[in-house]
């Protein structure tokens, strides 16, 4: 059973009288332990797909099964719980709470999960140590460098032991050196068996992953596996059929046409 099983989902937005198909028909399976990049130009639907994968949004049609539960029919409360337990977000602009310390930021998901104080503290400290910030726990975000902020965000994302680490342009606001560090951290996490999905438009970032799903005009345009030295590909890569070519949709539109 796949960790993520997406069957023919679509997402429509109503903009005035116009209907926008952000996602037309996407089918995708992701196994536990995969390190996957979702790529595509702007307007390709990758943000929409990320929002759906992150349970921030629900598809207009199709079915999304995450860890054996059908997310596409859940209500807001249930989705909040799924986000809390199953998903760890890492954002381009870090999205830490500015007035809280690193430790408080990392503790926050556990507060919503109802973890008792002592355990919360211990787990938050462990998570911050794991990303190399044991000596920065009482610093506020504005006292940390960009790379350190993103590490706090990674610690926060992982502290509830989610099924997926979902990163949206995680290196977008970092200089290239720090970006490489964060990607190295992802690499390390992937080796330890975390499932990581990175949404990016940078080929370089995507090349660090082991599988790249390319979107175009709300459809999966390509799904390729990367064979790299030392990094083993997922053991049972069941590639879903690429519907883009098989589906009778409108002809491909050049990027940026939307």
């Amino acid at each position: 059973m796949s960790l993520i099983d997406i069957q023919r989902i679509s997402r429509l937005y109503q903009m005035g009288t116009e209907t926008i198909h952000a996602l037309r028909d996407v089918t995708l399976q992701i196994q536990r332990g995969e390190y996957l990049a979702i790529m595509g130009p702007s307007g390709s639907g990758k943000s929409t797909l990320m929002n759906i994968l992150g349970c921030l949004d629900t598809p207009s049609g199709g079915k999304f099964v995450l860890n054996n539960s059908d997310v596409s029919v859940m209500d807001d409360n249930a989705l909040s719980e799924i986000r809390n337990r199953e998903i760890g977000f890492v954002f381009q602009s870090f999205n830490l709470l500015a007035r809280s310390t690193a430790l408080q930021n990392v503790e926050l998901p556990m507060i919503y999960a109802g973890v008792p104080k002592s355990e919360r503290h211990k787990r938050a400290m462990d998570a911050l140590s794991a990303v190399g910030l044991a000596d920065r726990v009482h610093h506020r975000p504005n006292e940390l460098s960009g790379g350190q902020r993103q590490r706090v965000a990674v610690a926060r994302a992982l502290v509830n032991r989610p099924s997926i680490l979902l990163a949206d342009e995680p290196t977008g606001n970092l200089d290239s050196k720090t970006g490489v560090e964060i990607l190295a951290l992802f690499e390390e996490l992937a080796t330890k068996g975390n499932t990581i999905i990175v949404v990016t438009h940078e080929e370089e970032v995507a090349q660090h992953s082991r599988r790249i799903v390319r979107l175009r005009d709300g459809l999966v345009a390509a799904d390729e596996i990367l064979h790299k030295n030392g990094a083993a590909a997922p053991e049972t890569p069941v590639f879903p059929p690429i519907h883009a070519s098989a589906h009778a949709g409108p002809p491909p539109v050049p990027p940026g046409a939307h």
Binding site: D76, N77, S80, R83, N84, F89, N95, L97, L108, Y112
Partner: peptide, 16 residues
């Protein structure tokens, strides 16, 4: 607003 978004993303329910 953004803080609210962050909180919702990491699992805060509406009532939280």
């Amino acid at each position: 607003t953004r803080e609210i978004g962050i909180r919702r993303a990491i699992g805060a329910k509406k009532r939280n």
